[in-house]
Design a protein around this nucleic acid. Structure first.
Length: 534
RNA sequence: UCCUGAGUAGCUCAAUGGCAGAGCAUUCGGCUGUUAACCGAAGGGUUGUAGGUUCGAGUCCUACCUCAGGAGCCA
């Protein structure tokens, strides 16, 4: 707004930019007279005392206005304020033990920028409201302290997620949102008319960032994705944001290490920046601290090799605390060799490739020592569910070979206080582009990361098929139109390499980190099956 | 698509088949430490829609609409 820099501005102008304090930083102004710009959140009175509570987007502060302490017109002006009227408040910051934040504002003057008319009061009161009403007024609901806190945390989660990749050598390459065909054959797509041809809103940028990963080595994308699934649950939106890394020469083990380091960075960042916001929303931060707490010893830190009884299991299990993986996976100084070939079993039917030669240093990146999220193979998770069903802890038995249902995921994640990684699902229930496990080709080299506390899958990832012939036959087996995937097959015609990546749904991550019971509160304007207004 | 539940004042909810109610919000009045303040008063209704049963329907029946929770599917 150009006006703000006008030399003719004076302090009485509502948008003057000088000497404006924010509520979140009032502690630094104790004893000083400051000016706030914001809105009236609520007002109480007791005789000749007024207690207006102001908010400015950074927090709330209670003001106090004794009738005897201010000019009569100021008292009357404050008394006339209606909820969400916009104001410019001048007052002195005073520490007060009675205030929830520790500070109060002795109001000296209030200018009204806009008075909400009494005939049309602000609809959202500091009382209880129903879901439908709140969602219908989402454009106003976001003003409440709880919603504002959630949106601030969301912003930090998004920033931390990008920060992790940006500072670890990843290049952001955003894929198109308009696409000519399905990325995966399963989900329902939003179709639209593209100058006479059918087109779709993207449901994942993965196939495209596989292309940019083979160009740039390590890439990620971050943007909205769309799924026209008719899902009405606390975990589903039709439009949601996903951040997806894709790395050339990285195998599933590297993918899992990346996911763990990535989530650890995000949780660490929100914990160091949002203590006050977590308090506002009533989040038990101990649950988050447990996620990033180091693990000293746990029998549940299984890896695939343990599950299958290979010789390397003892090396992993007996690793010293702080040693985050078996020595064959991590090089000296905890630098991960992304393609952990030495741990990979000999390919069953793969083309003759020298594992050592295909491990370029350019694609390696440093993954810091982490806290080792528990890992389960699909088979181990299934066994856990069999025991749970026998003990009556889950209602329905899990059928081997089926995907895990929501109650199954909830039970599994409830057994751990960190995100749990389930890897090597049956290939038959997973996407066509996932690389088969060389040891057991009926399994896919994929991983789902389940958030703690029953929040379900927040990350899905895999190593991608790198063989042209295998990928082509997979596309045909899934009855996908070969012509639409010619460009994707090109990636296997010209210098194909093993590569892996994952996608994290931002809203589910926010719901978990904030402890919310529905993803609709994690995004400014949620798009759900039955709602596209406002 | 399927299962379950809910639609009554601006909001959150009551009301044996028998006079349409309360709290909050709004307006007016009271209170010098309130924290969703409290106390007193006033205004505020086509009970989601359309039919049906009945002397009489917010309440029972049928259809539809809307919303919510869940399943499937997924992040």
């Amino acid at each position: 707004m150009a006006l703000i820099r006008s030399p003719n501005m004076n302090s009485e102008n509502p948008v003057a930019s000088t000497s404006i304090a924010t509520i979140s930083s009032l502690a630094a102004h104790e004893g000083e007279t400051i000016t706030l710009r914001g809105w009236l959140y609520n007002i109480r009175s007791s005789g000749k005392l007024l207690f207006p509570t102001f908010r400015d987007g950074t927090g709330t502060i209670q003001g106090i206005v004794p009738k005897a302490a201010v000019p009569p017109e100021v008292f009357d002006r404050v008394k006339s304020l209606t909820q969400e009227s916009s104001v410019i408040v001048t007052g002195r910051v005073r520490a007060d033990a009675r205030a929830p934040s520790g500070f109060e504002l002795d109001v000296e003057n209030v200018e009204i920028v806009h008075l909400v008319p009494e005939s049309t009061p602000f609809p959202i009161t500091p009382k209880e409201h129903g879901v439908d009403f709140l969602m219908e007024h989402r454009h106003l609901w976001v003003r409440t302290p709880r919603q504002a806190a959630i949106l601030r945390i969301r912003a930090t989660i998004m920033r931390a997620a990008q920060e992790y990749f940006d500072t670890n050598g990843f290049i952001r390459t955003d894929p198109p949102i308009l696409t000519p065909a399905a990325c995966e054959g399963t989900s329902t797509l939003f179709e639209l008319d593209y100058f006479g041809d059918p087109a779709f809103l993207t449901q994942s940028g993965q196939l495209y960032i596989e292309a940019t990963a083979l160009a740039l080595g390590k890439v990620y994308s971050f943007g909205p994705t769309f799924r026209a699934e008719k899902s009405k649950t606390r975990r589903h939106l039709t439009e949601f944001w996903m951040i997806e890394p894709e790395v050339a020469f990285m195998d599933l083990e590297g993918d899992m290490q990346l996911a763990e380091a990535f989530l650890t960075h995000i949780v660490t960042t929100v914990l160091t920046n949002h203590r006050a916001d977590f308090k506002v929303i009533g989040r038990d931060v101990a649950k988050l601290e447990a996620v990033i707490a180091p693990v000293t010893d746990s029998p549940l830190l299984s890896s695939r090799s343990e599950a299958e009884g290979s010789a390397s299991s003892s090396a992993t299990e007996s690793g010293a605390p702080g040693s985050t993986a078996s020595s064959s996976t991590l090089g000296s100084g905890h630098e991960s060799v992304i393609l952990s070939d030495t741990e990979r079993p000999k390919p069953v039917e793969e083309e003759s490739k020298n594992p050592e030669a295909s491990t370029p240093t350019t694609a390696a990146h440093t993954i810091p020592p982490t806290n080792r999220f528990p890992r389960l193979t699909y088979d181990e998770a299934h066994a856990m569910l069999e025991v749970a069903f026998a003990e009556g802890k889950i209602e329905a038995a899990h059928i081997y070979g089926d995907d895990f249902g929501s109650p199954d995921e909830t039970y599994i994640s409830s057994q751990f206080d960190k995100p749990v990684m389930i890897h090597r699902y049956p290939a038959a229930i997973k996407a066509f582009y996932m690389q088969p496990d060389p040891i057991d080709p009926t399994k896919a080299l994929c991983v789902d990361v389940l958030a703690p506390e029953g929040y379900g899958e927040i990350i899905g990832g895999s190593q991608r098929v790198d063989s042209y012939d295998l990928l082509k036959s997979r596309i045909e087996e899934h009855n996908l139109p070969l012509a639409a995937f010619e460009w994707y097959l090109d990636l296997r015609r010209y210098g194909s390499v093993p590569h892996s990546g994952f996608g994290m749904g931002i809203e589910r991550a926010v719901a978990w980190i904030c402890g919310l019971d529905h993803v609709r509160e994690t995004i400014p304007f949620a798009r759900t099956l039955n709602r596209i207004y406002p």
